[in-house]
Deep mutational scan, measured.
Amino acid sequence: DEVRLHVNGHTIEFRGIDEEIFKILEEAAKRGADEEELRRLAEKLLR
C-alpha cells in the first residue's frame, strides 16, 4: 500500500499509511513542512 504526496515539486512516497494519516501529512505539506518533517510526522503517527 503506497501513497504519493507532492510537495514543492517533489514526490514523496509513503508505504503502509491509511487515508487519515495521509490527510494529516497533506495538510502539513500545505503549511510548508519539508520532506524530513513529513517523514518524522508519519513515523509518530504510525506508532
Rank of each mutant, 00 (worst) to 15 (best):
D1Y: 15
D1C: 09
D1S: 13
D1N: 11
E2P: 14
E2L: 14
E2N: 09
E2C: 04
E2W: 12
V3Y: 15
V3G: 10
V3H: 15
V3D: 06
V3S: 08
V3F: 15
V3N: 14
V3R: 15
V3W: 15
V3P: 06
V3C: 12
R4F: 10
R4A: 11
R4L: 14
R4W: 13
R4S: 13
R4E: 10
R4C: 04
L5Q: 02
L5F: 03
L5T: 02
L5W: 00
L5K: 02
L5H: 02
H6W: 02
H6Y: 04
H6D: 11
H6G: 02
H6L: 09
H6R: 05
H6E: 15
H6Q: 14
V7E: 02
V7M: 06
V7W: 08
V7P: 02
V7H: 04
V7F: 09
V7L: 06
V7G: 02
V7Y: 05
N8R: 02
N8I: 04
N8E: 06
G9A: 03
G9R: 01
G9M: 03
G9T: 03
G9N: 04
G9L: 05
H10C: 04
H10Y: 05
H10P: 02
T11C: 11
T11G: 04
T11I: 14
T11F: 15
T11K: 03
T11D: 12
I12P: 01
I12C: 05
I12N: 03
I12W: 01
E13Y: 12
E13V: 15
E13T: 15
E13P: 03
F14D: 01
F14W: 03
F14I: 07
F14T: 01
F14Y: 04
F14E: 01
F14R: 00
F14C: 06
R15K: 11
R15H: 15
R15V: 15
R15G: 09
R15A: 10
R15C: 10
R15W: 14
R15E: 05
G16V: 04
G16K: 02
G16Q: 07
G16D: 09
G16I: 04
G16W: 06
G16E: 05
G16A: 03
G16P: 04
I17W: 05
I17S: 03
I17L: 10
D18C: 07
D18H: 07
D18G: 13
D18R: 05
E19V: 10
E19Y: 12
E19K: 13
E19M: 13
E19S: 12
E19W: 10
E20D: 11
E20L: 09
E20Y: 14
E20H: 14
E20K: 13
E20R: 10
E20N: 11
E20F: 13
I21G: 11
I21W: 04
I21A: 11
I21N: 13
I21R: 04
I21P: 00
I21Y: 05
F22K: 11
F22M: 08
F22D: 02
F22A: 10
K23A: 08
K23Y: 10
K23H: 11
K23E: 06
K23I: 09
I24H: 10
I24S: 04
I24V: 14
I24D: 02
I24T: 06
I24K: 08
I24Q: 11
L25P: 00
L25I: 05
L25Y: 01
L25C: 01
L25S: 00
L25K: 00
L25R: 00
L25H: 00
E26Q: 14
E26R: 11
E26N: 13
E26M: 06
E26C: 05
E26S: 13
E26W: 07
E26H: 08
E27R: 09
E27H: 12
E27K: 09
E27A: 13
A28G: 02
A28H: 12
A28W: 13
A28Y: 14
A28D: 00
A28C: 06
A28E: 08
A29V: 07
A29T: 04
A29Y: 09
A29W: 09
A29N: 03
A29H: 05
K30G: 08
K30T: 08
K30A: 07
K30P: 00
K30E: 08
R31D: 12
R31K: 09
R31W: 14
R31G: 09
R31E: 12
G32R: 00
G32K: 01
G32S: 01
G32C: 02
G32D: 02
G32I: 02
A33Q: 06
A33G: 04
A33W: 11
A33I: 11
A33D: 04
A33S: 09
D34R: 08
D34S: 15
D34N: 12
D34M: 10
D34F: 07
E35L: 08
E35K: 06
E35T: 05
E35R: 05
E35A: 06
E35W: 10
E35G: 07
E35I: 11
E35H: 08
E36A: 12
E36H: 10
E36N: 10
E36M: 09
E37L: 06
E37Q: 12
E37G: 07
E37W: 08
E37R: 04
E37T: 14
E37M: 11
L38C: 01
L38Y: 01
L38D: 00
L38W: 01
L38E: 00
L38K: 00
L38M: 02
L38S: 00
L38F: 02
L38V: 11
R39K: 09
R39N: 07
R39C: 07
R39H: 05
R39M: 13
R39L: 13
R39I: 14
R39P: 00
R39G: 05
R39T: 04
R39Y: 11
R40Y: 12
R40G: 08
R40W: 14
R40V: 10
L41V: 05
L41N: 00
L41H: 01
L41E: 01
L41M: 13
L41F: 04
A42G: 04
A42C: 15
A42Y: 14
A42E: 04
E43V: 07
E43F: 05
E43D: 08
E43A: 11
E43G: 03
E43K: 07
E43N: 06
K44W: 15
K44L: 12
K44T: 11
K44Y: 14
K44V: 09
K44C: 05
K44M: 12
K44A: 06
K44I: 14
L45I: 07
L45D: 01
L45R: 00
L45A: 05
L45W: 06
L45Y: 10
L45G: 01
L45H: 05
L45M: 06
L46E: 04
L46H: 04
L46I: 14
L46S: 10
R47C: 15
R47E: 15
R47D: 15
R47K: 15
R47W: 14
R47I: 15
R47L: 12
R47M: 15
